[in-house]
Each structure stands twice: as structure tokens, then as C-alpha cells.
């Protein structure tokens, strides 16, 4: 969790808004620091978190999480975190009886029509339980990332449907939050990915877009973050809808500053 980012978004783990879809998007840079931020943010907020991690291994997220002050191992043991490790369980799909449903069932199908098994997994994971052993606050779904589903052969409408159902269940029915990362393929003109990104942008309430600098790599400024609030017409009539900052990723923190105001420049 990066306190400076919380300040920019005007939120803290104690008083985060509910029922929102946050879209993380990165172009020409790596936006995974945003995923780590939200993972530690919601674990600290005492939320029940379902993390669909298709990009990295559990230990990777765990090591970064420890730097940010959360232990994924403990959270998983306590039942706070449900972790779907895509890298590991993708192998399981091929070594189990076909009848058993598997969240990543689409890997086994020639033309994957639907991500319904993955949605069923999320719904099961975040289903409110009555046993009063540990009362978590609202549920949260994190996906890292959705673009890789396209690369694995899932159609863009199927991914949008998956997000739609997750939104209907997690954000609306359970009053929780959803955070998903999508890559922006600026140069490659990947039409499917563009449709996915735009379709999700239309559904989301908050868009965080990390962009590499147009001038290339820089030691002191790692990129630019654009914050776009959507559907905020009623609550924030007078507020700026778009904010842009530059950031520098440090070992355990990310510092944000106005454009051109990097401490290294001044």
C-alpha cells in the first residue's frame, strides 16, 4: 500500500468506497505496482480478497507483499485470501478428470466460448459465509491481468461477460469492489485488446492509467499516472475529473509529484 497514492485517490483502508470497479491500465510500462498496491490495501482493510493471479507465482506476490507490510501466506491461512495461481493450476487442468469443473477449464477447450467456470470459482470464493470465525468486511476481486486471457485464446466478448458477471455479483450483489489490470497495446494495434480496454473503461468507476514517458527511460521519473473518475457527476460536481502525476517507484514506496516537478529535476 502506497500512502501517497491513497492521498491522491482520497481514500484509506478504513473508509474505502464500496461497489466500485477500478480499472488499472498500463501502456509502455509495467503497471503491476498498482496491483500490489490494491492487494495490500484491501488485505489491510480486512476485506475478503479473491486474487486471480495469472501472471506471477504466489511467492512473487508474497515477497512484494511482505515489502508492503502484508503476508499473503498468513492471509491465505486465515482464510482472508483466496489465491488462484494461474501458473500452477493451469497444469492441473490437463491432469484431472474432465468432468470435474476447473476455473481455468477454457485452457482445455479448442475454442473457448465462456469463462463461466472462472466466474463460478470467484463466486464460490467470495460467497458470504455464516460461520462467525472471522468476520471480513466486504469482498474484493483482483485480477492480474485480463489481457492474458485474450492471449490464451479467449474471445473479447467472453472476457467482457466474465467481468460483467463479476461486477454484478461482487460489486452490486455483495457490495464489494473489483480491481482488474489490462495492458494497453498502444503501438501494436491489437483490436481485440482495444475493445476489451474500452469496454471495461465504460464499465468502470475509476481508471488508473500508468504510462511510460514518451521520451523513454529515465532514472528519476518512471512514468506518468492518469487518474480518471467516471460517473462521479453527482458527488463531485466541481472536482477535477482527470488528474495526472508522474511517479518514481522506490524499494518500498512510490512517490508521486506533479508533471515536471521531480525532486531530481528541481
Amino acid at each position: 500500500m502506497f500512502p501517497e497514492l491513497n492521498n491522491l485517490l482520497n481514500t484509506t483502508p478504513d473508509r474505502a468506497e464500496q461497489g466500485k470497479l477500478t480499472l488499472l491500465c498500463d501502456a509502455k510500462t509495467d503497471g503491476s505496482f498498482l496491483v500490489h498496491h490494491f492487494l495490500s490495501f484491501y488485505l489491510k482493510a480486512n476485506c475478503k480478497v479473491c486474487f486471480v493471479a495469472l501472471i506471477q507465482s504466489f511467492s512473487h506476490y508474497n515477497i512484494v507483499g511482505q515489502k508492503l507490510g502484508v503476508s499473503l501466506t498468513t492471509a491465505r491461512e486465515r482464510g482472508q485470501l483466496v489465491f488462484l495461481e494461474g501458473l500452477k493450476s493451469s497444469v492441473d487442468v490437463f491432469f484431472r478428470a474432465q468432468e470435474e469443473p476447473h476455473p481455468l477449464q477454457f485452457l482445455r477447450e479448442a475454442n473457448a466460448e465462456t469463462l463461466q467456470p472462472l466466474y463460478e470459482f470467484v463466486r464460490e470464493a467470495l460467497k458470504p459465509v455464516d460461520s462467525g470465525e472471522a468476520a471480513w468486511r466486504y469482498p474484493v476481486l483482483l485480477v492480474d491481468d485480463l489481457s492474458v486471457l485474450l492471449s490464451l485464446g479467449v474471445g473479447v466478448v467472453a472476457v467482457l461477460d466474465f467481468v460483467h458477471y463479476c461486477r454484478a455479483t461482487v460489486c452490486w450483489e455483495l457490495k464489494g469492489n473489483m480491481v482488474a489490470l489490462v495492458h494497453d497495446s498502444v503501438d501494436t494495434e491489437d483490436e481485440e485488446n482495444d475493445v476489451l480496454l474500452n469496454g471495461l473503461s465504460h464499465q468502470s468507476h475509476l481508471i488508473l492509467r500508468a504510462e511510460g514517458l514518451a521520451t523513454g527511460f529515465c532514472r528519476d521519473v518512471h512514468g506518468q499516472l492518469t487518474i480518471l473518475w467516471r460517473r462521479a457527476l453527482r458527488t463531485t460536481a466541481q472536482r477535477e475529473q482527470i488528474l495526472t502525476y508522474q511517479y518514481k517507484i522506490q524499494d518500498k514506496n512510490v512517490s508521486f509529484f506533479a508533471r515536471g516537478m521531480s525532486p531530481a529535476v528541481l
Binding site: Q116, Y119, D161, H164, Y165, A168, W172
Partner: peptide
């Protein structure tokens, strides 16, 4: 049609 459009 938001809640369950595809009858999942």
C-alpha cells in the same frame, strides 16, 4: 438484463 443476461 444486468443481473443475469446469459442465464449463467
Amino acid at each position: 438484463l444486468f443481473r443475469d443476461p446469459l442465464n449463467w
